[in-house]
């Protein structure tokens, strides 16, 4: 075998990285809380936290850290899925317009909230629903445009994604232009991507769905492997290709759109993580999907810690950290791809 890295080693390392970034998130910040206090509070032992410390730990740091881990994992799984279904290693949910569509739709819901005085649904649920519809609409649009003679064209796909993203940015700007101050802040968040708003309510809506969607995608791993051979070949092996693609795209849109509803557009996670893991463990989705979840969780967790701590007391949106990391990575990928397309 050409692959020296064992699955157990990669999985163990990534699991440790996830735990480390969680610990890092809980233990750092403007308010000092030490490891012993956190351990005691989390295990329910004697409460040695002050009231302020308790609030910071349980209402700010813990939900935010969990959101970072779940969103990172879900975005990496979504990226990995789009890459398999479209058979294009450059497909990232934020490139192909899904994130942009979700962001516009979520922002429109938020801006329209005050127009509906007696709302029975909690706003978090409404925004998540809006993001889902917008993401799904953008995915259908972009995939339809990029499809020619039953084959998805990689270049057309990225260009269609570009156009949808530009349109989405324009609409977001329009909504922001006419928005009141709190809406404006939230829309800025969607543009740059930030975990600052993630609280327990948002998390309760999105986290279980993202985890379930990721698990359901894992169940399709063997069929996704077959799909890499080509759609016709997968059909000959016995895969119901149309059904598989529809289901997987819908689940990947759920992962992406709920991430957007929680934290805005965070790019490159879905591109970087599956790509690096493919180099380590190969393209077998039975291993790649769960490892991508762990890798995405660890990466976004770490990136959010950097975003919180780099310019204290101010905070950088985590989307900016990811873009600064991801854009050079993407350029490197393009250079490599230019030389030997079959290895990208």
């Amino acid at each position: 075998m050409n692959r020296p890295t064992s699955l157990a080693l990669v999985g163990g390392t990534l699991g440790a990285a996830v735990l480390a970034s969680l610990a890092w998130a809980l233990l750092t910040g403007p308010l000092a809380i030490d490891a012993a206090q956190v351990a005691a509070a989390l295990t329910g032992a004697a409460n040695r936290l002050g009231a302020a410390q308790h609030t910071v730990l349980f209402d700010l740091r813990l939900p935010r850290a969990l959101a970072a881990l779940t969103i990172g994992g879900a975005l990496a799984v979504a990226g990995c899925t789009f890459q398999a279904v479209l058979r294009n290693p450059l497909a990232d949910p934020s490139f192909i317009g899904v994130s942009g569509g979700a962001a516009v739709s979520a922002a429109a819901c938020l801006a329209g909230l005050h127009l509906v005085p007696s709302l029975t649904l909690p706003p978090q649920l409404l925004i998540a629903l809006g993001a889902l519809l917008g993401g799904l609409g953008a995915a259908v649009l972009v995939l339809r445009i990029a499809r020619l003679d039953g084959d998805t064209q990689p270049i057309t796909l990225l260009l269609a994604g570009l156009a949808v993203n530009a349109f989405a940015a324009g609409l977001l700007g329009l909504i922001a232009y006419g928005a009141s101050d709190p809406t404006l802040r939230a829309i800025t968040l969607w543009l740059f991507g930030s975990l600052g708003r993630a609280g327990w309510t948002e998390l309760a809506v999105a986290m279980p769905l993202m985890v379930v969607a990721s698990l359901l995608l894992w169940r399709q791993a063997a069929s996704l492997n077959a799909l890499l051979l080509g759609e016709a070949e997968a059909a000959h092996i016995g895969v119901d290709v149309a059904r598989l693609k529809r289901g997987c795209i819908a689940l990947a849109v759920v992962c992406t759109a709920l991430s957007v509803a929680l934290a805005g557009v965070i790019g490159f996670i879905g591109l970087m993580v599956p790509h690096m893991l493919r180099l380590l463990v190969g393209p077998d989705h039975r291993a790649l999907l769960p490892l991508s979840f762990l890798g995405g969780a660890a990466l976004l967790g770490a990136a959010d810690n950097v975003a919180r701590l780099a310019l204290q007391p101010a905070e950088v949106p985590v989307g900016i950290v990811c873009a600064l990391l991801g854009a050079p990575f993407f350029l490197g990928l393009l250079l490599r791809w230019r030389r030997s397309p079959e290895l990208a």
Binding site: R278, D284, E342
Partner: peptide, 9 residues
């Protein structure tokens, strides 16, 4: 024709 470009062994 075969179009597999992912690095399976």
């Amino acid at each position: 024709q075969h179009s597999l470009s992912f690095p399976f062994t």
